[in-house]
Amino acid sequence: MGLILQVFGAYVVTVTSGIIFETPKHLVLQSGFIGALGYLVYLLSLHYTGSAVATLLSGMIIALLSHIAARLLKSPVTIFYIPSIFPLVPGVGIYKIAYYYILGNTNLAGKNFVESISIAGAIALSIFFVDSFLEVYNTVKIKFKKI
């Protein structure tokens, strides 16, 4: 039950951030589905890996599904990327950095800093990997059509 509730929460977060960023109304539910599916991958892979690797895997799923949705629905890919990534953003980690730093516990602040930077880097890398793979795939596909 807890897993379903968390995935539903990710869906709500994605839809809400889509509304805030003025995603077209007919695409809000699709971006919510992508965000919820990405967060489900995060939760399932978190049991086997660390948070940064789980974020990388779920970010890659979000990026791939965003590209597929963009092509099928003839929309810019960022309409799906931006709201769907929100459930993965390390907001609590960033809060803990400031909290522990104010308390004077620099060890815990540093630990949370490294973890938050790792998660943020995993988000960026996941988008980079999928975009680069699709760019290479499309280039190779065009080259082979000419032959």
Rank of each mutant, 00 (worst) to 15 (best):
Thr78Ala: 09
Thr16Gly: 14
Lys146Leu: 14
Ser66His: 05
Phe144Lys: 14
Ile117Asp: 02
Tyr42Phe: 15
Val130Cys: 03
Tyr48Lys: 07
Phe80Met: 08
Pro83Tyr: 07
Ile68Asn: 02
Ala70His: 00
Ile94Cys: 13
Met60Ile: 12
Ala70Lys: 07
Lys146Ser: 13
His67Asp: 11
Val13Tyr: 07
Ser51Pro: 08
Ser126Asn: 08
Tyr100Ser: 07
Ile97Lys: 05
Gly59Glu: 05
Ser31Met: 04
Lys74His: 12
Leu64Pro: 01
Gly32Val: 06
Ser31Cys: 10
His67Lys: 03
Pro87Met: 07
Tyr42Glu: 09
Ile119Ser: 03
Lys146Thr: 13
Leu56Lys: 03
Glu22Met: 06
Val12Pro: 04
Val7Thr: 14
Val140Asn: 04
Val89Ala: 10
Leu103Val: 04
Val15Cys: 08
Gly38Met: 03
Lys141Tyr: 07
Ala109Pro: 00
Gly50Val: 06
Leu57Pro: 01
Phe86His: 08
Lys141Cys: 06
Gly93Lys: 04
Leu44Trp: 08
Ala70Ser: 13
Thr14Met: 02
Leu43Asn: 10
Gly121Gln: 05
Ser66Leu: 13
Ser126Thr: 06
Leu29Cys: 07
Thr55Phe: 03
Gly2Ser: 15
Ala54Trp: 04
Leu43Pro: 00
Tyr11Thr: 14
Ala69Tyr: 00
Ala120Asp: 07
Leu64Val: 08
Phe113Thr: 14
Met1Ser: 12
Ile142Tyr: 12
Phe86Gln: 14
Ser51His: 08
Gln30Ile: 15
Leu125Met: 13
Val15Ile: 15
Pro76Ala: 11
Lys111Met: 11
Tyr99Cys: 02
Tyr48Ser: 08
Leu72Ile: 12
Leu64Tyr: 11
Ser132Asp: 07
Ser84Arg: 00
Val12Ser: 05
Gly2Asn: 10
Phe86Val: 15
Ile34Val: 10
